[in-house]
Amino acid sequence: MKPLAVSAYTVTSALGHGLDAHLEALTAARTGLRANDFSRDALTCWIGRVADVESTPIPDDWRHRDCRNNRLAWLGLQQDGFLDQVNAARDRYGASRVALILGTSTASIGATEEAYRRLEDQRIPPDMREPDIHSPHSLILFVADALGLEGAALTMSTACSSSAKVFASAERLIRLGVVDAAVVGGVDTLCDSVLYGFNALELVSPEPCRPFDRTRNGISIGEAAGFALLERAAARPGAAQLIGYGESSDAYHMSTPHPEAAGARLALQDALDRAGITPEQVDYVNLHGTASQKNDDVEAGLIAQVFPDHTRVSSTKGFTGHTLGAAGIVEAAITLLAMQQGFVPGNLGASEPDPVCGPQFAWRNETRAVNVALSNSFGFGGNNACLAFRRGGV
């Protein structure tokens, strides 16, 4: 495929607001996870909660779309000069020529939970009767208005691969001439449905998650917002580039990955093929690495089979928690940051590496050039995505 320039990007998570906060936490090997102080009945677990979401006001023009998920989106959009970059792209191409593609797994379901808790005579209270809030498209409706965009607008909801697959959709729209640029990203906030849902599946750890540790016992759920602006490479020489992507759906099981990584392997190979690269050329892979038993076992086995010893790999969910529908964009942003700064983030949380892990694993931070990198995102139902990036100027 023809590369796309990543003209701008930003991320807000439990590590902090914006790229500088993330770089500081990553280089200091400091987690953003903390004991659960969100769920109503204090479920015993650790979470990646974003600071200041509740105190972030939605601008008056969009008060009818006020909910925690949209507050986090607005908080995230204001970091790293991202709004200025989007405004410049909108002026350059026209509002109808910039697409908006956002991933989310829960959208504003937290607001719907609140509405049902506050039923009045078995009816949703008047201040919560806003259809846009109780919609899977609440995020895209809010952000399209906030950015003043009038082009193609898509909500991607494929579980944990949601905000990785947005890059693939953007590439297709730009390649086909439907638009000239695209804002991609994802936002998911903490809510009881997610915390108790994953707990019911016996997937939530009572302590900070430990991806790829021999004694790992489940995930830590986080929340995040992340965005990127994609344009044709010629428009932004010197910028980091999206050089490939891969997608697959093995449909092996509702929540368990294929034991032989069939779908993940297809997505990985698809990304390499589109990028025109071999595994030997990949410097770093940001793994999906949720710290669940099955996911880590399958993904580690795939890495050992495909990549040479010198390729470095790690999961960064020990820093942020699993941000669900926002995981793809969060980990893409961390990958881009690692490329820009010349380091590999360590696999935070693991003290006893699982024997299935090969020599590719970076258990601690490493300083090294990262010219080509991949980011894996694997969702429920075997809905997989893999992104390939190249450092700017290479």
Rank of each mutant, 00 (worst) to 15 (best):
K2S: 02
P3T: 08
V6P: 00
Y9F: 15
T10N: 07
S13Q: 11
L19G: 09
L23M: 12
L26H: 02
L26D: 09
T31Q: 13
L33F: 06
S39H: 04
T44W: 09
I58R: 04
P59S: 00
R63E: 10
R63K: 09
R65N: 08
R65S: 05
N69D: 08
N69P: 03
G81I: 00
N87R: 15
N87P: 14
A88E: 03
A99R: 03
L100Y: 05
L102E: 06
G103K: 06
T104M: 05
S105V: 04
I109C: 11
T112D: 04
E113D: 06
E114I: 14
Y116M: 07
Y116L: 06
R123S: 10
D127L: 07
D132Q: 11
S135K: 03
I140W: 06
I140S: 02
L141C: 08
D145I: 00
D145F: 00
D145S: 01
A146T: 00
E150M: 06
L154C: 03
T155R: 13
T155H: 12
S157D: 07
S157M: 04
A159H: 12
S161I: 00
A168L: 13
A170T: 10
A170Y: 00
E171H: 15
L173M: 11
L173I: 03
L176N: 10
L176T: 08
V179T: 03
V179L: 02
V184K: 03
T189K: 02
L190T: 01
C191S: 01
C191I: 02
S193G: 12
A200D: 13
L203D: 10
L203T: 10
S205D: 15
P206T: 13
E207V: 05
C209T: 01
P211W: 14
F212C: 06
S220F: 03
E231D: 04
E231S: 03
L242G: 03
L242T: 03
L242A: 07
S249M: 10
Y252R: 01
P257G: 10
A264D: 04
A267L: 09
D270S: 12
R274D: 13
A275L: 15
G276N: 06
Y284A: 09
Y284H: 07
L287Y: 02
Q293A: 09
L302K: 05
V306I: 15
V313Q: 11
K317G: 02
G318T: 08
T323C: 15
G328M: 08
E331R: 13
G349M: 09
A350S: 07
E352K: 11
E352W: 07
T367S: 11
R368C: 10
L374Q: 09
S377C: 01
N383K: 03
C386T: 15
L387G: 03
R391V: 08
G393Y: 02
G393K: 05
